[in-house]
Design a binder for these strands. Sequence first.
DNA 1: GATGAATGAGGGTTCATTCAT
DNA 2: AATGAATGAACCCTCATTCAT
Lengths: 209, 209, 209, 209
Amino acid sequence: MSDCERHKIMAIDREKRDRIINAAMKEFNKGYKNASTDAIVKEAGISKGLLFHYFGSKDKLLDFIIEYAIEVVVKEYFELINFEQRDILERIWQTVLLKFDLSYKYPMMFDFLTTAYKENMNGVVLEMYGRVMSEFTPRFFSGIDESLFKDGIEPKMAMNVIYWTQVGYSHSQLEQIDSTDIIDFQKEYERYLSEIQSYFDLFRKIFYK
Amino acid sequence: MSDCERHKIMAIDREKRDRIINAAMKEFNKGYKNASTDAIVKEAGISKGLLFHYFGSKDKLLDFIIEYAIEVVVKEYFELINFEQRDILERIWQTVLLKFDLSYKYPMMFDFLTTAYKENMNGVVLEMYGRVMSEFTPRFFSGIDESLFKDGIEPKMAMNVIYWTQVGYSHSQLEQIDSTDIIDFQKEYERYLSEIQSYFDLFRKIFYK
Amino acid sequence: MSDCERHKIMAIDREKRDRIINAAMKEFNKGYKNASTDAIVKEAGISKGLLFHYFGSKDKLLDFIIEYAIEVVVKEYFELINFEQRDILERIWQTVLLKFDLSYKYPMMFDFLTTAYKENMNGVVLEMYGRVMSEFTPRFFSGIDESLFKDGIEPKMAMNVIYWTQVGYSHSQLEQIDSTDIIDFQKEYERYLSEIQSYFDLFRKIFYK
Amino acid sequence: MSDCERHKIMAIDREKRDRIINAAMKEFNKGYKNASTDAIVKEAGISKGLLFHYFGSKDKLLDFIIEYAIEVVVKEYFELINFEQRDILERIWQTVLLKFDLSYKYPMMFDFLTTAYKENMNGVVLEMYGRVMSEFTPRFFSGIDESLFKDGIEPKMAMNVIYWTQVGYSHSQLEQIDSTDIIDFQKEYERYLSEIQSYFDLFRKIFYK
DNA sequence: GATGAATGAGGGTTCATTCAT
DNA sequence: AATGAATGAACCCTCATTCAT
């Protein structure tokens, strides 16, 4: 995607741009072919012509969304994690908060990226994402203060359990939400954090000294 | 899907019906929109008209295939679980073995169901799956011998952790497998079981008395 | 255009095929971009889908029409001219009759080919047509019995005058006809032939001995 | 096109108006559909909105350009014909010279009008052209000194033959010219006039006493 | 039951036209 | 008057669905 095109897009009013991006993520999450540009413009509240004025084609729209999503995830998630925090529970807790913040602005971002990656929607860019991810995961689980764990607890396994629990809980929550009307987001947010925190408390009790 | 329609389908010569079902699963595995009714009838060796005579529409064909797949999963998975086993770890362990057997007998079926679920195909999967699961899940987690848990461990949460860990581990394995060439299935099978067993050993140690 | 595709098209019911061909010629005569496939199917009385089922694309439809038109013109016009007739007036008179017969089945054929050639609608095929034409024209005006002309009349010029008069007359007639409803074709036919014959009589008088 | 609209257009700064007219002729020469209003405004150096402010629509812009072109043709062609010349050969000879002068001064104009006529652009050309021509043609062929013709020569027919020959010759010349690079215009001009003159000599000989 | 030619709604895309500024 | 972002009707094309046979 040329800089010129990117520039044209980034010049759009921020609120409208985010509406388009979110609508596109939501649609593309169904798969490339299943995604309808009609549905995107309807959801974003713009005209068909405008979408193509900015993005040129469905393909280029997808490319932009993927690049943008990766950029945002890298800048507002990966790069904000404090790796000096050597307590894995606290480190994962950071990701919970960061993901939550991101999900407020772009609710479908992580789901979309997962789908895009699995469908290999854009070979080149997503390969980069794969590389970033495969570098990130080991780094995330390294430099951990394993002395916090009880004797007899394999730290690697414990970390996986913590990670999968957090993922599982998030998904179980998502399934209950009709993402279109998020009523009382703040309240939901607090309940969500409080529940997941209780799992972290459990882990601290059973895994840590 | 009405019983009348089901009846009409089940009345088809078994061999021809299986040809259609297999062709449909193979096509739908590409995603709903990518699946072509032309390709299905060509693969199944029947005419376009006949497919629609039997199934009415692409949607209904998909519904049938999903129902059929779920039916098999229910009969050869859910119903084989021994609910007299009141130890949750042992009960979940059963599911690991059963799932594995099924994916050995019908490798396409789980791929298809996964795709159908990921794409939320037609809204039907989620409804069907949701119905089955919402009946199954509470039952699965009920009648558990909670006396096995240590004091101070909330059994409900512990069970969720066990469940999400098993799901998370399975997914992490699936992502590493290129399902087309299953080399040395037996060996993989053993490694898989052995690794997940070590997690169950961990849970037994930390959650149980 | 592959033989397979041609075969599929030639298998269409003759009357329907000619309806499509005539509708396409009429539309494409406006220029490629101005031609609307919607207008073609409407005029031909078929559905959009069928047009594309047979021809694949607007481009391929045009290619077929051009190839077909050239083929017809060669077989039912060029090749039917009797070059043993050495009297130029009689030779041109033949073309008047042949063109008229062709115009009955395919009214737009010659106009369409002219437009197609001028717009260079299909480089490869029309180049061939150009070659055929550039071979045809000199051949048409060669082998003429020049002894029929009066002394002092340059035969080459006389022949051009005869030819351009016939073309000019034809065009003056076409402009008066609303080609959609050809009422009483037979009567028009006779008037047309009778009028143009009077020009030929004139030429015989002024040019011939 | 209403006088009000014409007035608005004619009120535009002459230099800017000519820029628009020239840009429009250049674009429309590609064919109606191929002509892009975007290209016109870019070439003319004005905004999209302004074009439509002045001309209302692409169709109306075309109408204006055609009217304008025809107006020029009328003023610098039709109205310069000397109808006191009662010798039809001399009268037609005048048109040959006038047309040639015009195409020398406005080479684009005849190209554009030819394209407009061939494409039957917008139905307007034909109507305009038809109106002008249907007034012009009878007048052109009236007031002729028929006493110049030999006995037994129908003057009407002879005049048609002369006219069609001149048209036919012009067309045969146009087809040989690649109008973009007019090399040695003067030489071509002389050859053209000399050739057509020989036809007029022929006609004088065969038709006149 | 069985066929496949025929249909037309809907897809992505373009571009003349409008309108708030 | 002058702008250009925004619109939506119309384009070509696809494909699930129908229906005469």
